[in-house]
């Protein structure tokens, strides 16, 4: 009887520990974000720091974004055509491709790829800096590692993701055009005119941009925080990198639903 009681209390205690740890980490992440944001004005005056990170986060991610955008657009066109042709509405192909890219796939797929390509690299880099005590060394030299190392990476991610998402959508529309007009013989005029009359700047394009900005903030925040909060061992860095990809992807997908519900306003 006594053994059973201790088992029950153990289970409860473990549960409590998990909840407390999660809350503690969330709190640390929030405080960390506030600390980073307060360092933003300092970093903006040293623009070259951001430019260096923009190269690492943005330019090097460009290829994967362009290639996947192209193929996503092409597949959308192919799939959409096969359904639309049943209703004799293949002229709306351009509209369908553009709307799905600009509103949903552009921001979301870009954010997922960004988390895998750039976010994980950020976490690994910062985690390794911590494990090899480079961050502590900076502090010894009275250099604030947050403004010198973390804020430029965060800002670069926030700037890069909307630009990458715009490129993804634009290339996707062109890919859809290549397949739809070039291979499936949809009329080029109606492909573009249906798209232009029905895609609205405010409700469609601006909302897509807002989404990608939010995803940029969340993905970079998670990546930088996980690196900074990593256990300073090689195993700890590996786990942190893993967590960055999982948490970023999950929060992007969940936030996407919330943002869509808010902007469409039907719920």
């Amino acid at each position: 009887m006594n053994a059973r009681l201790t088992l029950a209390t153990d289970v409860l205690r473990n549960l409590g520990a998990v909840v407390l740890n999660t809350l503690e980490r969330l709190g640390r992440a929030a405080l960390f974000l506030v600390e980073m944001l307060s360092g933003v004005p300092v970093v903006l005056r040293r623009f070259i720091l951001i430019a260096q990170q923009l190269y690492a986060v943005g330019v090097l991610t460009l290829l994967i974004i362009l290639v996947s955008g192209m193929f996503v657009g092409m597949v959308l066109s192919l799939q959409g055509y096969n359904t639309l042709v049943k209703f004799g509405a293949e002229e709306s192909l351009g509209l369908m491709v553009a709307l799905s890219l600009v509103r949903e796939l552009g921001p979301v797929v870009t954010a997922l790829l960004f988390a895998g390509r750039a976010g994980s690299a950020l976490t690994a880099e910062i985690g390794l800096m911590k494990a090899t005590e480079q961050l502590a060394g900076m502090e010894m030299m009275a250099v604030n590692p947050i403004t010198r190392v973390l804020v430029p990476r965060f800002l670069a991610g926030v700037v890069a993701l909307p630009l990458l998402a715009a490129l993804f959508s634009a290339v996707g529309v062109l890919g859809g055009h290549v397949v739809g007009v070039g291979m499936l013989d949809v009329d080029a005029g109606s492909f573009w005119s249906q798209m232009q009359t029905n895609v609205d700047f405010q409700t469609d394009i601006l909302n897509g941009v807002i989404k990608s900005v939010v995803f940029g903030i969340v993905c970079s925040w998670i990546a930088v925080f996980e690196g900074y909060d990593a256990v300073p061992t090689s195993e700890g860095v590996a786990r942190a990198t893993n967590r960055t990809v999982v948490y970023s992807s999950l929060s992007v997908l969940a936030l996407d639903f919330i943002l869509t519900a808010l902007t469409l306003g039907d719920i």
Binding site: P162, L163, A170, V173, M195, I205
Partner: peptide
Amino acid sequence: GLMALAMLSFKVGN
């Protein structure tokens, strides 16, 4: 990136 955004706004969104 900015050109892609402009293309989306003017060519796609008209």
